[in-house]
């Protein structure tokens, strides 16, 4: 079985978000770039399945749509344990553009399971996975919080509002995974970092696709008034404020 993980290259989650050029461009000054946290969990789970002999996973590939500056992030995925990588050489314009590039790059490669993280921590779109599945005419399962192989069959936990469903599905399919898919992201060991330099990273040129959306301007959240403190001995004051001022109870 061959597994593909789609990676986003995103600012580290503790980055102070700023913009330049009259709030039209993200300010990359001093930003640390990382594998999108959910994609990292997806990769971790794929590697766990590869180590499980019963799961019969022969290869884990990662793909990213980005310019050469995303290669450190791709190499990190290889250092964590992916077998090989694909980079589609293009500036990601929107989710439709990214999904189109991935669809084109992998359409003849016969991946059995394609995994996307639930959203990227930059644009929070939750879109590439579903779009890619539709473009490839593949079944998809979203909100996946667990994935196992039992007697050769794929068994998935899908979160639903207020509960979960356990379902089985045949390959090929696409999974959009979230919290629970793996406990902690795997960290690259020194040996992995050394090996990553020698692993294959294929660069594919982009196809001509138009983005369907344009980011025109960013806004910072309105500065919020300072927290109104209530004395711990007068909890009733809080009840009054919530009822009369905030009007939420």
């Amino acid at each position: 079985m061959k597994i593909l993980i789609c990676l986003s290259n995103v600012p580290d989650t503790t980055t102070k978000i700023k913009f330049t050029d009259d709030n039209t461009k993200f300010d990359e000054t001093g930003v640390q770039w990382v594998i999108n946290p959910w994609d990292e969990l997806a990769l971790t789970r794929a590697l766990e399945l590869k180590e499980d002999a019963g799961a019969n996973v022969e290869k884990v590939t990662v793909i990213n749509v980005g310019l050469a500056n995303t290669e450190p992030t791709i190499r990190k995925a290889l250092a964590i344990g992916a077998d090989d990588a694909i980079r589609v050489n293009a500036e990601p314009k929107d989710a439709f553009f990214v999904a189109s590039q991935i669809a084109n790059a992998i359409k003849d490669q016969g991946f059995d399971i394609i995994i996307n993280g639930i959203e990227s921590s930059d644009f929070n779109g939750s879109a590439v996975g579903g779009m890619l599945a539709e473009m490839l005419d593949l079944p998809s399962v979203s909100a996946v919080s667990a994935m196992k192989v039992e007697n050769g069959a794929i068994v998935i936990d899908r979160e639903i509002d207020g509960g979960k469903e356990v379902l089985s599905i045949e390959t090929p399919f696409l999974a959009v995974v979230q919290k629970g898919i793996a406990l902690e992201p795997r960290i690259a060991a020194m040996r992995g970092i050394m090996m990553a330099r020698k692993k294959p990273l294929t660069i594919i040129e982009a196809v001509d696709v138009q983005a369907m959306t344009d980011f025109v301007a960013y806004e910072m959240p309105q500065p919020k008034p300072p927290c109104k403190m209530v004395d711990a001995d007068n909890v009733k004051d809080l009840v009054n404020l919530l009822h009369n001022e905030a009007k939420v109870i």
């Binding site: 600012p11 989650t13 978000i17 913009f19 921590s121 930059d122 644009f123 929070n124 983005a211 369907m212 959306t213 344009d214 980011f215 025109v216 301007a217 960013y218 806004e219 910072m220 959240p221």
Partner: peptide, 13 residues
């Protein structure tokens, strides 16, 4: 966008 640290205005074409 950016997990609530900012907002974006987006044109759908």
């Amino acid at each position: 966008v950016y997990s609530g640290n900012a907002f974006g205005n987006v044109i759908i074409k």
